[in-house]
Amino acid sequence: MTRKSVFRDPAQCMNCKTCIIACKLKHMFPPHNTTGAAADPKGVNLIQVYHVDPEISGDNVHQPFVSIACMHCEDAPCIKVCPSSAILKDSETHITLVDQERCIGCKACLWVCPYGAPSFNEDGKLVLCDLCIDRLREGKKTACEAACPASAIYVASPEEISELRARKAVERIAGGKME
């Protein structure tokens, strides 16, 4: 398997939160069912989708939906600061993985992450998006990419991703062309 990179396109995202539930289903994250509904259940979310308040100019509305999860940085600062070497790169795919046994929950990764992406489970241990590495190995798409109705998530090689981003930027600047 080649190196993998992820691009979550803010221009395509529709804020439907399918990716969040697909991710929860894949990993069976809490909150779990309880008898008698809990008013404010708290669980683990690897993906957060944020809405940027619309900017209206003329006929155009600009309101990207930004989904933040581990970006799998090539030169990941979290790996460098982790005191217990619990974060590592998969040698084959360069996906950032977490060794939960080693994680001590010091949150150094959170304090160094440029995106504030790290999330922690109920034991205080780091949980990161692993790009569904097991599914990728089986030749499937990641859970979120497969489910996304707006095709806003792309998992591919870094070269393909940068090409895609460049193409989208050109289209945007050229204007008029629908994405």
């Binding site: 304090w111 992450c113 440029p114």
Partner: peptide
């Protein structure tokens, strides 16, 4: 982290 996110 919150401000980093909003800056992002």
């Amino acid at each position: 982290p919150k401000c980093r996110r909003s800056n992002y």
